[in-house]
Amino acid sequence: MTTDTGVNNGRLALLDFYLCDVRPFRQLTGFLRFVVEFLYFGMKEARACLFAGLFFVSIFLVPKAGLFGVPRYDVLLVIALAIQIFMIWSKLETLDEAKAICLFHVVGFALEVFKTSGSIQSWSYPDFAYTKVLGVPLFSGFMYAAVGSYIIQAWRLLDLRIRHHPSYWMAALVALATYANFFTHHFIGDYRWYIAACALGLYARTSVIFRPYDRDRKMPLLLAFVLIGFFIWLAENISTFFGIWKYPNQLGAWSTVHIGKWSSWSLLVIMTFTIVANLKHIKRQIHVPD
Rank of each mutant, 00 (worst) to 15 (best):
S255R: 12
P248Y: 09
R23C: 07
G260F: 08
R163G: 01
K99D: 11
E37S: 15
R26H: 11
V22T: 07
P24D: 02
V257S: 01
A171P: 02
L50F: 14
A224T: 09
M271F: 12
S264T: 15
S119Q: 13
R163E: 01
L50M: 14
V208N: 03
L160C: 08
G69A: 11
W155K: 03
V78M: 10
Y213V: 02
L176C: 13
I152Q: 02
P220G: 07
A199R: 08
L138Q: 01
R211F: 06
S266I: 10
A52I: 06
I83R: 04
N181P: 00
V257H: 05
A277P: 02
F60V: 14
W254S: 04
Q121E: 15
L200G: 09
I162Y: 06
L223Y: 10
L202V: 13
A175E: 04
Y125V: 06
Y179M: 04
V22P: 08
I270P: 04
V70M: 14
M43Q: 15
C49T: 08
V133Q: 12
A171D: 03
Y194A: 15
L157A: 07
V136E: 07
A154D: 02
A175F: 05
G141C: 04
L227W: 07
F114Y: 14
F38P: 00
P126E: 13
D21R: 15
Y213Q: 06
I275M: 12
G189Q: 13
S124Q: 13
D190I: 12
F182V: 10
Y179C: 07
A199I: 08
G141P: 05
N278W: 08
W193L: 13
D290I: 09
F17R: 11
A52W: 03
T116R: 02
C198H: 04
K283E: 02
H165I: 04
M219W: 11
W262C: 01
F128I: 14
Y144N: 02
V36G: 08
V78C: 10
I152K: 01
M219K: 06
M43L: 15
C198P: 01
G141F: 07
L227N: 14
P137S: 03
R161G: 03
Y191H: 13
Y194P: 12
L251A: 02
L157K: 01
F139V: 05
F242M: 11
I162L: 10
